[in-house]
Nucleic acid binder design. Structure first.
Lengths: 348, 348
DNA sequence: GACCGTATAGAAAGCGCTTGCTGCGTTGCT
DNA sequence: AGCAACGCAGCAAGCGCTTTCTATACGGTC
């Protein structure tokens, strides 16, 4: 029924070994023989059996990319850049690899299960993107998994994620703390003294780091933070909308709202607008990430640009062994403050 | 080095066959034996070798999802819904499957290569999302591939993509034509007579169908279309921005701009605004898809909502054999006109 | 008490491919 | 001319698992 290597071999009048070598091209084969084999492959429309090959060679061409939310462009952009670099079809390196994106939905269990599935498939590399869960047992479990993967020869790269201790995983970490600080410093510089902060889910590293940066800026400016000024929520528009209403309820005198990311900021803008407040005349708004739509918000969003695509591409190259990992296996990727229309001098 | 089935068997003092059966749970094994085996699995931290298992069983737990652009939420949302339904980790069905998303970047070759890669892995199912290329040889090649995949037992589902002729692939098709028509009818109803249209790339089915709907509405209203009113471009914001400037240059008297999708519409809004035109007072704008950010545009975008998540979920269920395919293998999914602030009565 | 059906475990034959090693024919060198 | 060296192809032994078929041990039945 299905065509096998042996069929091709028979047709080309060579041994299966030769066919395999032609296909893998890592062993000298005479040009005429190679041609004969390739013709047979073509005529029979032969497709290599991946599992069999992976079993025999003890390696596979699968590369896994773990994302928290595939519907979020933040991850989509990174995944896209990674995948482009992994090669897969059209990639530069001849070795065709199947770059696959796995959606954890931010769930620790899923993350672990996908890691196991990837381990089971003997993946060539695994790239984890975005913030990690701040949950000791889970973090330990992930670290253990990563160690096991590395032991089995799988390259592990973290992209936009803090380093995993006790692991030799390469980490390209976003400077969320620094970015958050810069952003709030900008707002403080404009004269804001009462700033609301819409943070992401509590247990994410990204959430904590951005918030820390914000607080560091406040502290340095000698501004005492009111606990009512911080609200936690998911990383989406809806959460931003609701959190803003809540902030407004708690303290209507706020002159600025800093959001955990751009989607949240958009929701915040909607809530402010519906509350009859002008941006930035009445309240300034700031986001984080600088996703493509941020510039189209009205007014356009002041935010921190993260080089998502660049970081993804680099992570991809490192995972493919085409680029040296940074010294110490850890690199910090900084964001860039993008001052736009949504932030302004506070009303006096 | 790595733990194998045999190691587990030895530790549990049973035969490898028994361990396999415990793991697959499709054969009676005494409770006490099962327990012993599971304990051994746990103690040895055993992970099944995917390729070996796939080879022996001639099936795999991989499910492929092909998307044109993973960075575009249009695809992200569908992929997310599919993946949630496929189960993978956390899914309802016990059978854990690795749902993987492959990014074709809209390239025919990549699409084909990914299909081959998936075929090579003996994927359990393949889901193709979004518009197809309108290129006869390529379409034939894809159809041939799909036929071969189906022959090999892979379930093939198209989601938001036109049916593939001569293929028994199940198709959940978006009614792009109908949606486009409705949208333009709405604009015409408001009184618009000179409508610019920013279409997507020429060779996509989505592009053509939406444009056809637009033109059908014009024709029915007895409006003769000026060829200068249509511009083609990519499906992104940038293209929308540039196309709008071009449209304005060609005919400054246009009172409405219909965009191929929401991202394009956003770019159009930016261009109009920068050109000193008010929306919708001077020019109305409409998008397509109703992606989450569309409601946050200012003014919010009039568009056609496509039930991306629902369609994705359904496609996922069908791919898993958990839902009956529609009669004839083809179902049309309609969009819903969302009238919002970006469309209004034209200036007179 | 011999016989049989049932429940459970094991033996062993692959699944389709890779690769170390062997073998042969040819070229290069002295 | 003789021998080493080399280039290229084949043999065969797995890779780790699934699954068919067979074997064993019961318990029950007539």
């Amino acid at each position: 029924m299905t065509v096998t290597l042996a069929d091709v071999a028979a047709r080309a009048q060579v041994s299966p070994a030769t066919v395999s070598r032609v296909l893998n091209g890592n062993y000298p084969v005479a040009a005429t023989t190679r041609e004969r084999v390739l013709r047979a492959v073509d005529e029979l429309d032969y497709v290599l059996n991946g599992p069999a090959s992976a079993l025999a060679a003890a390696t596979s061409d699968l590369v896994g990319i773990l994302v928290n939310d595939i519907a979020d462009p933040f991850f989509g952009i990174m995944a896209s850049a990674i995948q482009a670099e992994i090669g897969g079809p059209g990639g530069r390196a001849g070795g065709e690899r199947l770059a696959v994106t796995c959606n954890t939905g931010g769930s620790p269990e899923r993350e672990l299960t996908y890691l196991t599935l990837l381990q089971r498939q003997r993946a060539a590399a695994v790239i984890l993107t975005g913030g990690a869960m701040e949950n000791a047992p889970h973090a330990a479990a992930v670290a253990a998994k990563l160690r096991k993967l590395a032991d089995a020869g799988t390259r592990v790269v973290l992209c936009g994620r803090p380093p995993a201790p006790d692991t030799d995983a390469v980490a390209l970490t976003f400077d969320n703390r620094g970015g958050g600080k810069q952003l709030t410093e900008h707002l403080i510089g404009l004269g804001h003294r009462r700033l609301g902060y819409i943070a992401g889910p509590e247990e994410r590293t990204t959430t904590r780091h951005r918030l820390e940066g914000h607080r560091a800026a406040l502290a340095e400016a000698g501004i005492e933070e009111d606990p009512r000024w911080t609200v936690h929520g998911r990383y989406d528009r809806r959460a931003g909308y609701e959190a803003t209403l809540e902030l407004l309820r708690r303290d209507p005198t706020l002159t600025a709202v800093v959001a955990a990311n751009d989607s949240v900021a958009l929701g915040a803008c909607a809530a402010l607008r519906e509350s009859g407040l002008r941006i930035p005349a009445d309240v300034s708004v700031a986001g984080f990430d600088d996703l493509p739509f941020s510039i189209d918000a009205v007014p356009s969003l002041t935010t921190v640009r993260l080089p998502l695509a660049e970081a993804g591409a680099r992570a991809g190259r490192i995972a493919m062994g085409r680029e040296e990992p940074p010294p110490g296996g850890i690199a910090t990727v900084r964001g860039e403050l993008m001052v736009r229309g949504s932030s302004g001098v506070p009303r006096t």
